[in-house]
Design a protein around this nucleic acid. Sequence first.
DNA 1: TTGAAAGCGATACCAT
DNA 2: ATGGTATCGCTTTCAA
Lengths: 340, 340
Amino acid sequence: MVTMHDVAARANVSVATVSFVVNGTKPISPATTSRVEQAMRELGYRRNPVGAALARGRTKIIGMLYPALQRPLSGTVGGFFTSAAVRAQERGYQLVLWPISNESDEAMALADTGLVDGVLLMEVQLNDNRVPALVQGRTPFALIGRTADPEGLAYVDVDFGATVTTAVETLVALGHRDFCLVTGGSRAGRFEEHGPAERSRAAFLADIEAAGLTGAVRYCLEDSREGRAFGRAFRDEHPDVTAMLLLNEHAAPGIVIGLREAGVRVPEDLSIISLGSSAHMANMVDPALTFLRSPADELGRLGVDTIIDRIENPDAGLPAVLIPCEMVPGGSIAEAPGRA
Amino acid sequence: MVTMHDVAARANVSVATVSFVVNGTKPISPATTSRVEQAMRELGYRRNPVGAALARGRTKIIGMLYPALQRPLSGTVGGFFTSAAVRAQERGYQLVLWPISNESDEAMALADTGLVDGVLLMEVQLNDNRVPALVQGRTPFALIGRTADPEGLAYVDVDFGATVTTAVETLVALGHRDFCLVTGGSRAGRFEEHGPAERSRAAFLADIEAAGLTGAVRYCLEDSREGRAFGRAFRDEHPDVTAMLLLNEHAAPGIVIGLREAGVRVPEDLSIISLGSSAHMANMVDPALTFLRSPADELGRLGVDTIIDRIENPDAGLPAVLIPCEMVPGGSIAEAPGRA
DNA sequence: TTGAAAGCGATACCAT
DNA sequence: ATGGTATCGCTTTCAA
């Protein structure tokens, strides 16, 4: 490996000088600069980030912590990751996706050892033991998502309350009065921990009550086969429901197929709005779903901005951003049956 | 930050001794060991991997290089990544997903600087300029996928030839004689570079010719809306085709929806086999697709084993593994029309 | 079994 | 505008 020493020797300067031209840390005469640059070129020098990291205490790397084992990487995460990676590069950082388990130790062990300058935590649960662990450490972090009480934390998240309200209002305007919210979650029994599902549920129940409507809440695993079974059984279990809010894009195609198998027509018999989805997923379903678009790209960018700001300016205020989803028309909603 | 010095001082030993107990490098008396361990506990010591990496020249980190900007992370990649991450951990490494562009420089710049011990290259193209760049460097690497001529490279890949042959044989046995292969690719004009598509195409044409059948090859962008348009137009463009091989799981639901809109029934009028897909994706379609299961998990594991073997034993042989997809029954194939 | 000390590669302070 | 050098945290050889 070619080191700064080699370059320095070749250019007849000191390592300090080489470092200065490499980093632009201090003014160096054009003559020396070009001599050094030529030496680097000839030798094929490439700065060793490990050495730099040790000396500087910074790596210019941001770790996006993702519980890959519990929650297989899907297209949604891909959206976050891609936009976040682009933004990081724009700001001179590298973003890497780091798989961790849900246990707190691992997150810390990585975060707190200097390998990354900061950490972006994904799939935050309402009661997430990784968060207190990170608070204890000295590595800056930010959340994509938020805990039950995100006071004092830097986060960006979807505004599920506003999103649900938009959906409910849209359907109420079409005459619907009997609702069902279907959320997801990758393993039974831990749904209460899932922020998006839980926040949507709370907003849903509040909206329903405020408007004097009826509303059930159901869970369905995030898998198309589960969706099929769920859809097949739905009408029998909820004969009166005419409007469904679906926070489960992976099960959505299966659910609609199951409904059709059971003789339920969408949207004539049942209107559906998919919450937090994308055009690609919505068009996998027939009819194409009316959906509220997840602001994945915006959140990815904002998340990166947030964590970098915290790294570079730890004393600034704590950003807390909520972005609502925006309605995209589709073919899955109609006037309530017997009203047209 | 608590360093080894702090621990050493607290335990009244030298830093060398602390290092020995931390790494188990040398035998240390039980008494000293427990004194050191207690000191570590009391101080909350955590070894700094940057320092370790610099001293040792190894980081125990494997970088999975992925062109996230060109090819948004999807569920398929998630499968690779998850199984690969698990396997890496089992073998004492960390696996991180590193977004890179398709340009060679970036891959190298990262790989060749000591931040990662080895590199796993994803989405390898037939003619991939990142590969010669990696060959020049001194960082071990392996491919998931392979170039046109993978001689001398370590790789694991799907056996597309065998997969296509299985599909064709299955359909021929049902009396089909007019085929169409539909592949994907995220941007027009670069399909020739896409290994899976190109290898499938070659195998397809060879099988078709050998059996005296007719076979068209079409491309469709990997998006459900594109799939819908494609499906709608298909019958007019290929009135005689009764059997479709589909190497494009993201467009699959849209294609079937489009076909139905155009009055084409699956499987009565047209049989479909999806190549390299998963149960989850196959069940997003109605009828559930008959598919050849992508060995994503196996490839992820094997890829990691391969790169770690190369890191730890560079002189061993170059593994070159091909795994065929395995048939999973579904509802999308039937006897050729007018044959039953 | 334990310790002293020489690096690993780069940074940045203090001189010149 | 340059250079000498201590330093970052840890590993590892060589001695004791």
